[in-house]
Design a protein around this nucleic acid. Sequence first.
DNA 1: GATTTAATGTAATAAAACTTCATGATTTCA
DNA 2: TGAAATCATGAAGTTTTATTACATTAAATC
Lengths: 281, 281
Amino acid sequence: MNDGLERIRQGLTTLKPSERKVAQYILKDPDKILAMPIAQLSKECEASEATIIRMCRSLQFKGFRELKLSISASVNQREAQPERYQDISTSASIKEIIEVVSSNNLQSIEDTLSVLNENSMEAAVTLMENARKILVIGVGASAIVAQDFEQKCKRINKWCEALTDSHAQLTSAVHLTKEDVVLAVSYSGETKEIVDTIKIARQNKASVISITSYGNNEVQGLSNVNLFASNLEQSIRSGATASRIAQLNIVDILFTGLASKNYQESIGFLDKTRNVIQSRF
Amino acid sequence: MNDGLERIRQGLTTLKPSERKVAQYILKDPDKILAMPIAQLSKECEASEATIIRMCRSLQFKGFRELKLSISASVNQREAQPERYQDISTSASIKEIIEVVSSNNLQSIEDTLSVLNENSMEAAVTLMENARKILVIGVGASAIVAQDFEQKCKRINKWCEALTDSHAQLTSAVHLTKEDVVLAVSYSGETKEIVDTIKIARQNKASVISITSYGNNEVQGLSNVNLFASNLEQSIRSGATASRIAQLNIVDILFTGLASKNYQESIGFLDKTRNVIQSRF
DNA sequence: GATTTAATGTAATAAAACTTCATGATTTCA
DNA sequence: TGAAATCATGAAGTTTTATTACATTAAATC
């Protein structure tokens, strides 16, 4: 069954003229014939159906069906992995776009892993576990990450508030206590609104955990615990922010860590919350 | 790109019992069925031929023939796959959690690739390109994906509205025209609120693009174009919804496809919008 | 417990693959 | 050189395989 195309190439010279015509036609665009009935192929390469069958047999296939299966198996051998973070060019086909975008997103998770500090993560989880309340803040693209974490926390009945409006953030920060934790999400780490809110939170003795891109940044300097997400995307103009995926990955880890601290209870809560949603279908 | 076995695995949970019986039989020894006519398979797994065909269709294959081709394509390309989706246990260390969560997220992007149809993606991008307005709808975890897409569209000056409140969704749907496109995000594909809104949109002749988990679902049935995200997480109780990452990956592709249609203009817009944000640091 | 709806199977039909055989071309050698 | 033998090919018929339409059974709903 292995590599049908190769078998056709190899056998080419041994074929009768009209059989060879068919074989060459197939080699020109193997993908195309996969969905073709023998009758159509017969028309397109001007050879009878019988000839096609005979060609299959000559190449040691049981029949046309087997030939197609075999071609399908070899056509789809995945092409070489595209390189690291790439950009999209003018003439990109959808296929290219799918590959490039996805591989950037994969890469951003992998890179984050190499930049992520276990101890910081452990510290962050412990802070949250003991927190009375978690205030999650972020604006723009980071707002989405903030909201995601809030949703998760609600599922395990952890008091958590995600605010994406800078006034609301400031207002809420005013009421924080030393029992509370702020989770600040900011790609740049320089977002003015976030910095302001963190400062107020610190004044109130709340702990601050940051999720920013790797490197020195203001948010990071003001935080008790820093978690870094990969930031390689800056070279990419695409706007399909891979860093957001990396940040969400961190949020997943934080949440899972938090949930596992009270494993039994959390599992119960998760099942409960899933059921209440599913019962609405 | 199209891994038939993965598609079967992904769709497994959405199948009717007897269809699932067939699917599981196939997964047990995929090679074996390649040479089998439908009648024999029917006997061996004790389900009617009609059920087999229905299973193929549920998994978005055109028929049994296509399913076999697709399996053949994937059978010999799956060497040493790293372990698939894992769950967190009671005693997991932070290190383990980091690894498992991240690898699940990576896997969800990869799986989505094998389930994603290029033609559908192309069709979706074209619809959006020509749309007067794009209405993005999603509730719960999918709300976040919807908002993410809205943010991106705003950056290239495409008229786009993300609504996460079901009343607002309905209200907005009433005003849609045949020039408009709805992008419906729903993990289950059965979200009542989303289904209702889609129906109204269709009445108004708007086109509907869906992003759901793989398989048969109501949203998918009501849509003009269907994009599928990997859904294996159901086995995971963690609540760290990997599917959301897969959905965001799809959104990235959609957006990049859209932006690349007017490459020069889009790049200009993206630079502009980035600058306006950065000037605030 | 009757009525609707969904799930599955049976049997007829359509499509595709494969065989048989006739025909015409090519080769062989008396 | 031309009759017999061999070979390559295609047209039409046959068998196998896939698909559809409809009937039946099971499950859910009222």
